Simulated assay, not measured.
Amino acid sequence: MGLSIGIDVGGTKIAAGVVDADGTILARTHRDTPAESVDETAKAICAAAAELIADHEVEAVGIGAAGFVSSDRSTVLFAPNLAWRDEPLGARVAEVLKVPVVVENDANAAAWGEFAFGAAKDVEHMVCVTVGTGIGGGVVIDGQLLRGAHGVAAELGHMRVVPGGHRCGCGARGCWEQYASGRALVREGRAQAESGSLAAAQMLSVCGITDPAELTGPMITAAAAEGDPCAVELLDDLGRWLGEGLASIATLFDPTTIVIGGGVSAAKELLLRSAQVAFEKNLPAKANRPHPGFGLAELGNDAGLIGAADVARRPIPTLESPR
Rank of each mutant, 00 (worst) to 15 (best):
I220E: 01
T216R: 13
W176H: 11
C168E: 05
C128M: 14
S205D: 10
M219Y: 03
G148N: 07
Y179A: 14
T133Q: 07
A111Y: 08
D211M: 00
E194C: 02
Q202C: 00
V129S: 07
E177A: 10
G151N: 06
V127C: 12
C170E: 06
G196C: 07
G132Q: 06
V131N: 06
L215E: 03
K121M: 13
A172F: 02
V186P: 07
T216Q: 11
W176E: 11
T210G: 09
A184I: 14
E194S: 12
M203V: 01
Q178K: 14
A120P: 15
G132D: 09
L145D: 11
A110H: 09
K121C: 15
S197E: 08
A200M: 04
A184V: 14
L198N: 08
H150W: 04
V131I: 15
A153Q: 07
V162R: 07
A153D: 05
I141K: 10
M219Q: 15
L146P: 01
T216I: 01
G132W: 04
R173A: 10
H125N: 15
A172G: 05
A180L: 12
A120K: 15
A199D: 12
T130Y: 00
L185P: 10
S205E: 13
I141R: 11
V140L: 09
A213K: 14
A200F: 02
L156A: 04
A119D: 14
A119T: 15
P218Q: 09
E188L: 13
L145N: 10
L215K: 08
G148Y: 03
V123M: 12
G171K: 02
R173C: 08
S181A: 15
H158D: 07
A149D: 04
A223D: 08
G138Y: 05
E214S: 10
R173T: 12
G189W: 08
L204W: 02
S181Y: 12
V162E: 12
C175S: 09
L156D: 05
G165K: 01
G157Y: 01
Q192F: 06
S181R: 13
G137H: 05
E155I: 01
A201K: 11
P163S: 03
R187S: 13
R183W: 11
G196W: 07
R167Q: 10
T133K: 04
F117P: 14
L146R: 06
G118H: 12
A200W: 03
M159D: 06
G137I: 05
A223S: 09
G137R: 05
E194L: 12
R160A: 01
C207W: 00
D211H: 03
E188Y: 08
G169V: 02
P163F: 01
C207S: 07
F115S: 14
S197Y: 04
W176M: 09
A222V: 03
